[in-house]
Every structure is written in structure tokens, then in C-alpha cells.
């Protein structure tokens, strides 16, 4: 039952992402800023930390494939990035003792890593000709701003869930 609830929650975030993408890009003066919602990966990193690494990887693979087929038409891009980052998050958290602040910072770092991987990939295959400086100013910083807000929200939700003992904090046993 709990397993289905977790999948349903991630599915809801997956469906919300394009809704937020409607509000972007934002044009301020001469500059265009892209706010990319990364709700799914942030929730996967939290799940890998506080719930189950293996389950986070599997859910990541599933939604990665959906994302690739429905939006990108390059199969294997998100289907690789989502599980990879979930795996990385779970592995990192085994070596440091995670609390909410550490997890939030690590998840923001991992989202940055993901943005850079995707930028490099798209640059390599010639989808974009955007230079580094412009990528950091117009895409990375606004995106990280959005996701910082979302990560704070996610941390609050997880504190609530752990206090209610809805999600077993497996990290305490390691």
C-alpha cells in the first residue's frame, strides 16, 4: 500500500512538472530566464535517502523512460540520469550521516550535476549552441532557485512523514 502511495506521489510530481514549465521562460528586460522544474529527481533523492535506495532507482528508471518517450524523443537520457542520481544519492548518504539540511544540500548539488550533464549532452549532439556563461546565468541559476524552494518544501514534507512514522527511516539502522 505504502509502495503504491510513493509511486503515486512521484507520478503526481511528474504530471505537475509541465504545468510549471508553462510559466517559464520569463522575460525580464533583454534577458530570458528559464526555470526548469526538477520535482521528480528531488523527490527521488529524498526517497533514496530516507526510504529505499533500490526502490528509488526503479521508480527513477520508470519515470525516466516515460519522460524520454513523451517529451524528449531520445530514449535513454533521463532513463539513465534519474536512476544514476538516485544511486549516487543513496551511496553518498551511506557515508555521511544524513539529516534534512545535509540531504537538501546534497540534492541541490546533484540537481546541478544533472543540469550540467544534460547541457553537455545537448551541446554535444548540437541541440543547443548556448555558451557556458549564458547557460549559468539564464538557465542554471534560475533553475536552482526554483528547486531550492521545492527542496525546502520536500524537506518539510519528509520531516512530517518521518515524525508520523509513515516512512521508515532506514538510515537509522545503517
Amino acid at each position: 500500500m505504502r509502495r503504491f502511495l510513493v509511486v503515486a506521489a512521484v507520478a503526481l510530481l511528474f504530471l505537475l512538472e509541465p504545468g510549471f514549465a508553462f510559466l517559464s521562460p520569463l522575460q525580464l528586460g533583454d534577458n530570458v530566464y528559464y526555470f526548469v522544474p526538477r520535482f521528480v529527481i528531488v523527490s527521488l533523492i529524498f526517497l533514496a535517502t530516507f526510504h529505499s535506495k533500490k526502490r528509488a532507482i526503479l521508480i527513477g528508471l520508470f519515470f525516466g523512460v516515460l519522460y524520454d518517450v513523451f517529451y524528449i524523443n531520445i530514449i535513454g537520457l533521463y532513463a539513465f540520469v534519474y536512476p544514476f542520481l538516485a544511486f549516487l544519492a543513496g551511496t553518498i548518504m551511506r557515508y555521511i550521516r544524513p539529516n534534512m539540511i545535509v540531504t537538501s544540500i546534497v540534492s541541490l548539488l546533484l540537481v546541478t550535476v544533472m543540469e550540467v550533464i544534460l547541457y553537455q549532452f545537448y551541446h554535444y549532439i548540437g541541440f543547443t549552441t548556448m555558451p557556458w556563461a549564458s547557460f549559468i546565468q539564464h538557465r542554471l541559476l534560475p533553475t536552482m532557485l526554483t528547486n531550492t524552494l521545492f527542496t525546502i518544501l520536500m524537506a518539510i514534507v519528509f520531516v512530517y512523514l518521518i515524525n508520523k512514522r509513515w516512512i521508515r527511516n532506514e538510515m537509522d539502522t545503517v
Binding site: 509541465p18 514549465a21 526548469v36 513523451f70 517529451y71
Partner: peptide
């Protein structure tokens, strides 16, 4: 329009 590519690298809508 039911969705806009959320990662916004390729500008497309569905």
C-alpha cells in the same frame, strides 16, 4: 496544449 517540454532545451509543446 496539454504539456510543454519541462526541461525546455528543445522548445516544443504537446
Amino acid at each position: 496544449v496539454i504539456a510543454r517540454n519541462p526541461d525546455q532545451w528543445e522548445e516544443k509543446v504537446i
